[in-house]
Design a protein around this nucleic acid. Sequence first.
RNA 1: GUGCCCGUAGCUCAAUGGAUAGAGCAUCAGCCUUCUAAGCUGAGGGUUACUGGUUCGAGUCCAGUCGGGCGCACCA
Length: 552
Amino acid sequence: MHEFFLPVIQRALTALGITTDKAIRIEQPADKKFGDFSTNIALLVAKECRRNPRELALELISHLEFPADTIANTEVAGPGFINFYLTAHCIMRSVEELLLMGDTYGNGTGGEGKKAIVEYVSANPTGPLTIGRGRGGVLGDCIANLFETQGYRVTREYYFNDAGRQMQILGESVRFRYLERCGKESSFPDSHYQGEYIRDIAEKIFNEKGNSLAEESEVEFFKKSAEEIIFASIRKTLERLGIRHDTFFNEHTLYSAQGSEPSRNSAVIASLTEAGFIGTYDGATWFLTTKLGQEKDKVLIKSTGEPSYRLPDIAYHITKYERGFDKIVNVFGADHIDEYPDVLEALKILGYDTSRIAVAINQFVTTTVDGQTLKMSTRKGNADLLDDLIDDVGADATRLFFIMRSKDSHLNFDVELAKKQSKDNPVFYLQYAHARICSLLRMAKQENGFDPDSDTEHHLLQLLSSPAELQLGFALLDYPDTIKGCLRLLEPQKMVDYLHSLAEHFHRFYQECPILKADADISRARLFLALATRQVLHNGFRILGVSAPESM
RNA sequence: GUGCCCGUAGCUCAAUGGAUAGAGCAUCAGCCUUCUAAGCUGAGGGUUACUGGUUCGAGUCCAGUCGGGCGCACCA
C-alpha cells in the first residue's frame, strides 16, 4: 500500500511548496482507531518549515487527492499525525486483484534483470551438519526465496574447502579408526574428530578394502573417502529441508594458476601490494589493517607459505563481482563475525562497490530437551545433529522454528515443543488455517458446486462488509509490504509473524461468518475471501519452505 | 581486556523513533445437535536490567553501569 499513498502525499507537499529530504513513511497504527494507515510527515517537516505540525497537517489534507472511492476518511490526530481510513470497496477491490494474480501475488519488479548470489551453509566436509548450521541454512534459503519474488535471478552457492588443516585432521582421524578396525594399536589424539561417524567411515572403508591399507602411511585416501561420504550426507540432510544449492564453489580453485595467469590468491596479493597494504614480517605476509585503524594486522600468507583463510575469501568475493552479481548476500553464524569486515576493507581498497554486499549473521542455537541445555562441538563428537532433529520433529517444524525468531536473537530450540503434534506447536496453527480452507473449499464444491477455476465472479466480494471480513481482507493486502520488509532487513521472521496474524484473522472470520450456510451470493463472496487467504498462506509458505497441507 | 549480539509478562519471543509496549504457552472464566474445537471470545499478569542524555515523542538512538552469549590464531 506504500506505493498507493506516497505519490499522493508527495504531490500535496509540492502543492504547498514544501521540499524535504525526509522520507515519507506510511505506517499501520497498532490501534485501528488511529486509522488503517497513518503518516507522521507533518511532524517531520514542521520543524524545518517553522510551522505548527497540526496546522500543517490540516493544510496537507486539503491537498490530498486520492482515486475515487478508496479513502473513507482522513483526519488529523494527536500532535499532527494524519490518519487514513480505507473504504470497504478499496479493500475488496484489492482482494479481487489478488485472486487474479494468484501465485505471483506479492511479487515485485525491483530485481528484474538483476542477478543475486546468496551464499549459505558453506560448511567444510569435516562432519555431518549440526543444528547450528541448520539455522543459517534455512535463513539463507528463505532469503534466496525472497529475492526471487522481486525478479532477481538468484544463485544459491555453497563455498567449501577440502584442502585445509581441518581436512587433514579429518583424514588422520579416519585412518586411526581404520587401524583400530584392523585390530592395530592406535592412540587416537584428543585433538582429532571424536564423532561416531568417523568410525562409520572407517568401517565402510574396511568393508571395501579389508586391511589392505593397514600399512598405508599416506592419509590422502582416507581424507578423500571421508570427504565424499560426508559431503553426500550433508547434501542429503539439506535436501530433506528442501535446501538445494546451484553451485558448489571449491576454495581450492583460487590457489592454482590458470595457464599463464597467476592464481587468484596471488592476484589479490599483487593488487593489495600495489595499493600499499601488504607487508612482510615474521616470515609471513600481512594485510596492513593497522593502517585502517585496526589493532592488529591480519595474516594473508602464513610463514609456511600457505594462505590463511582470509586471502582466498577476498579472492572468492572478487569472483562474485566478476560473475556479475548485483546483490551479494552472505549468511553465516555469529562465530564468523570477525571475518567479513577485513574482506570488505580489502574489496574497498581494490575499488569494488561494497554496498552490493549484505551480510546476514545469525546468532547461535541452543537446544533444550526436557529443559536441559545441550552444548555442542563437532570436534568432540557430541554435536546435536541436524539429521536427528529432522527425524525428531519433521522438516516443517525444523524450518519454521529456525526462522520464527529474529536472526539476532539467540534461538532456544525446544525440541519437546517442536515434537508436539498439538496446538502448542506454532507450526500447526499456520498449517491448520490452510488445511481448514482446503476442507471448506472441498465441501463447497461437493455441496454447492463451487469451482474456483470456473467461478470468477470476484466482484461479489463487494457484498462483504462485516468487521471480521474487512479485517481479513485488509490483512491480505499487507503481504507485498511484508515481503519487502523481510528483504530490507534480511529477516524472514517477519513473514512468520505476518502469517500468524493472517491465520488469526482467518480463524476469527471463520468463527463469525457462516460460509456454506449463508445466502448464495454472500456464500460465494466468503468463499472467494477464503480462497484469497489460502493463496496468501500458500505464497508465504513457499517463501518459508514450509508445506501447505490440504488436510490435517 | 576488547569487537559483535542479547537483556521486554511466570516461560519463549514480537514491536521501520510514534499514540494505551503486543502475541503464543502457562493460569483462570466462557463458546461445538451448526462449514475441521489443531479453533474462537474474555480476564489476570510490565518501573522494557540500571543511570544519565538527544527530541515534539525513546523498548528502539547516544554515553556509561550491571548481567548472559559468541568471537578475538600464521584454524576455517
